[in-house]
């Protein structure tokens, strides 16, 4: 585990010095957006991979956060930093309200309800005055790419760390997985599935809202067709599924691969934008059929299988008595 923590800080450290060497605005922008997608993909996976509930409206939390920041800054004169906690809270509240009726039911109802919720929120933004309707909202330009680079990096890193602490290090992730595997069985072991699922849903929504808030100020223009588009959920989903559900690193790797592909695609094949949708869809479908564990899941699965094989040959099972006892954590 030490190695994992080391790798995490090494990655953050490496990223933190990028702006010192890279002055190219385009590259900075791409990396900034990558951090955002990593954040969206890992939070989507909290519900999908750990709890086993597919949230087809994750983008709604992102959009709600974006609009919160925009409205508070433009209509109420708040400063950017002050709007971010509200953006997160509001997204969390939306998750709470949407989750209460739907998380009691089978996953199918949840999937449908979250999708409908996302569309409803998009409609709401289209008809309300405060959101500027279809015209969207313009925010004061703040042209400091390096600032946004660090803010996005910080939020994505904190989100990752928080999820790692809760899902891998503490017991919350195990409880979620137990509920994913068998809800009725988990109840007999003292778990309250309704409450735990709601907690997870809120946990996944809050960072998405904050990321949306940052995005609004960064891009300086938001409208329902951009920050509330289906494509946000679609993309986060492809990243998580492609990378590997039920892990934290899988979605990160998926985000890096898919986003790099998207960037290259749009840079060189911008005339064929709709082709991107086809590729996205086909990648999801093919991953489900041929790589249900995603890239990361498949890789680690193979490594684990090989390790088990080596271990099995090296250690006599009779005396190989629980080597982990007393070890802090081996996750």
């Amino acid at each position: 585990m030490r190695r994992g923590i080391f790798a995490f800080w090494l990655f953050i450290g490496l990223m933190a010095v990028v702006p010192a060497f890279v002055q190219n605005a385009f590259v900075l922008r791409i990396v900034t957006e990558l951090f955002m997608w990593i954040g969206l993909a890992i939070t989507w996976d909290v519900m999908a991979g750990y709890a086993g509930y597919l949230n087809f409206g994750h983008g709604a939390f992102f959009g709600a956060g974006a609009y919160t920041t925009a409205i508070l800054m433009m209509r109420c004169g708040w400063t950017f930093a002050a709007t971010l906690p509200v953006a997160g809270l509001l997204a969390g509240l939306a998750a709470l309200l949407a989750g209460i009726p739907t998380l009691r039911l089978k996953g199918a109802y949840f999937a449908i309800a979250t999708w409908a919720l996302a569309l409803a929120i998009q409609q709401l933004a289209l008809v309300l005055d405060i959101t500027g309707g279809p015209d969207g909202m313009r925010l004061p330009p703040f042209l400091h790419p390096v600032f946004f680079f660090y803010v996005m990096l910080a939020v994505a890193a904190v989100t990752f760390l928080l999820l790692w602490l809760l899902l891998e290090r503490a017991s919350f992730g195990l409880k979620l997985k137990a509920i994913r595997e068998d809800e009725a069985g988990a109840m007999a072991l003292g778990l309250n599935p309704a409450r735990i699922k709601i907690q997870a849903f809120v946990l996944s929504a809050v960072p998405a809202g904050v990321l949306g808030g940052i995005y609004a100020f960064w891009i300086t223009f938001i409208d329902p067709a951009s920050v509330l588009a289906d494509i946000i959920t679609d993309q986060a989903m492809v990243m998580a599924v492609f990378g590997g559900l039920g892990t934290l690193l899988g979605p990160v790797i998926g985000a890096i691969v898919v986003f790099s592909f998207k960037t290259l695609f749009w840079a060189y094949l911008a005339d064929y934008q709709v082709l991107y949708l086809i590729i996205l869809g086909v990648v999801i479908a093919l991953t489900v059929v041929f790589l249900p564990n995603g890239i990361w899941g498949t890789l680690t699965g193979q490594i684990q299988a090989r390790n088990a094989l080596i271990k099995g040959m090296a250690i006599d099972p009779a005396q190989g008595r629980h080597p982990e006892q007393g070890a802090d954590s081996n996750d």
């Binding site: 997985k177 137990a178 994913r180 595997e181 068998d182 009725a184 069985g185 988990a186 007999a188």
Partner: peptide, 10 residues
């Protein structure tokens, strides 16, 4: 449970 309920993936 009579019909055993392990969490199969764990």
């Amino acid at each position: 449970f009579q019909v055993v309920k392990p969490f199969p993936g764990l």
